[in-house]
């Protein structure tokens, strides 16, 4: 069964007739062709690579159907930089070498972008707990924690 949905992604409206069972992550990747949002687990919501923001709140897009996003504003990693200007968080990930393969990075950026808005002055422990919904296999997390802390300071 199909339904027509209206979803905004990074400010761009989409009106598409899609199968009801389509996951939001597949809508983002395969319909909107925004492949920065990744899939790292079998849709059990553990790895966090598919994290996006729904109306500004970090969410795992593999745990939602696309039809549930009807009428909502979605931001993906492609929507973070404005007019080519990277956010302090994106810059900080580069400066602190907070990514290696970069597969988990978009999800972490989307989660931490919201996190530092809500926690402008986080401690290391708070950042580490804020990251439990995102698995990273390469970095050991140390540089991610440093990058988030630095970005929070620069964003404040």
């Amino acid at each position: 069964m199909n339904t027509t949905v209206k979803i905004s992604i990074n400010g761009e409206p989409y009106e598409e007739n899609i199968p009801n069972r389509m996951l939001l992550v597949d809508f983002i990747r395969e319909v909107a062709m925004l492949t920065g949002t990744h899939v790292g687990c079998t849709y059990e919501g553990v790895c966090g690579a598919c994290t996006i923001q729904l109306d500004g709140e970090a969410m795992k897009s593999c745990l939602m159907l696309a039809v549930q996003a009807e009428g909502h504003e979605i931001t993906t990693v492609e929507g973070l930089a404005k007019d080519g200007e990277l956010t302090p968080l994106q810059k900080s990930f580069n400066e602190h070498h907070a990514l290696q393969c970069g597969y988990c990075t978009p999800g972490i950026l989307m989660n931490m972008d919201e996190f530092i808005k809500k926690n402008p002055n986080p401690t290391e422990a708070e950042i580490r707990h804020g990251l439990v919904g995102n698995l990273c296999r390469c970095t050991g997390y140390a540089h991610i924690v440093e990058a988030v802390k630095d970005a929070a300071e620069k964003s404040a």
């Binding site: 925004l34 990693v77 973070l80 994106q90 580069n94 990514l99 970069g102």
Partner: peptide, 8 residues
């Protein structure tokens, strides 16, 4: 990789 333009 930080702007979603990686090509995996």
């Amino acid at each position: 990789l930080t702007t979603g333009r990686g090509r995996f």
